[in-house]
Design a protein around this nucleic acid. Structure first.
Lengths: 139, 139
DNA sequence: GTCTCGATTGTACTAATTGTATCATTGTAA
DNA sequence: TTACAATGATACAATTAGTACAATCGAGAC
């Protein structure tokens, strides 16, 4: 029962191909230690069903990660996290994934006509309520 | 998927080029809420067949709309309506749409394992470079 | 123990569907 | 005629889907 639920969120309308989104999010979860060496990933078919995509699309993502020596795919057995990349790399990945996400958010907001001031104020507000919610749920 | 029938009416005798008529009518349906952000448009070939025109003509219209940031065309996948700048909505709606966007962004970032501090720092950084870029392009 | 067989897993190859790029053709106006 | 914009034809590239196959494992039969 080692395999994770691996909650990935695809955006079918973002310009990024599905397979790239899968790669990116797995790398990100790796950099954030949500995934650890030895963890088994869902099978290509299971993940494909969950994401409602063709299993070859998942297989493509896994193949890319395999070629990058991040996971090990073994025919007939499954797919496992090989190793966490060295700290410098994970830190870089972490930063890059956050930066990409933030950039998308800001571009969208600005394109929708919001001023930088409005955006930054809203982020502060929402962050504050996130923090309060977190404090509350500790009971 | 849920792509619309997109009933367009071309006038081959009006001086207006076909591609311009397509652009115009899609924009109009967007303004009239017949098309909504996220909707998938017909493929260039499907729409071309329906309108009895060459698919390059449709592709040209799509390209113009893409350049205007109204739609997003993705090779191998399809064409989608982008989020559009809400034209002159009430202050309340404006605020709500920014809040929704921000909430999605923060949820995603936190789900990916970033701390509130990291997120807020990154937002500050990116906003700063947006501002600088804007200052720079004024020459 | 080990053999067999079926279920499960990833792989390989191909097909289908999508938009893109480039050049040719056509029609119209100067 | 010449120039140019609009449209069409053709080839291409990227993404995803379909199908068949090979490797592995485990449950039973013996």
């Amino acid at each position: 029962m080692a395999e994770k639920r691996l909650s990935l969120h695809l955006d079918f309308r973002s310009g990024l191909p599905i397979y790239a989104q899968i790669v990116e999010q797995i790398q990100s979860q790796l950099a954030n230690k949500i995934l650890k060496p030895g963890d088994q990933l869902p099978t290509v078919r299971a993940l494909a069903q969950e994401l409602r995509v063709n299993f070859n699309t998942v297989a493509r993502a896994y193949r890319l990660l395999d070629e990058a020596r991040i996971i090990s795919t073994q025919q007939g057995r499954g797919t496992y996290i090989l190793e966490i990349p060295p700290p410098q790399v994970t830190e870089k990945l972490r930063r890059e994934s956050l930066e990409a996400l933030t950039r998308r958010f800001l571009n969208e907001a600005i394109r929708m006509g919001f001023s930088e001031r409005e955006v930054s104020q809203m982020v502060r507000d929402r962050l504050k309520s996130v923090k309060e919610a977190k404090a509350g749920e500790k009971e």
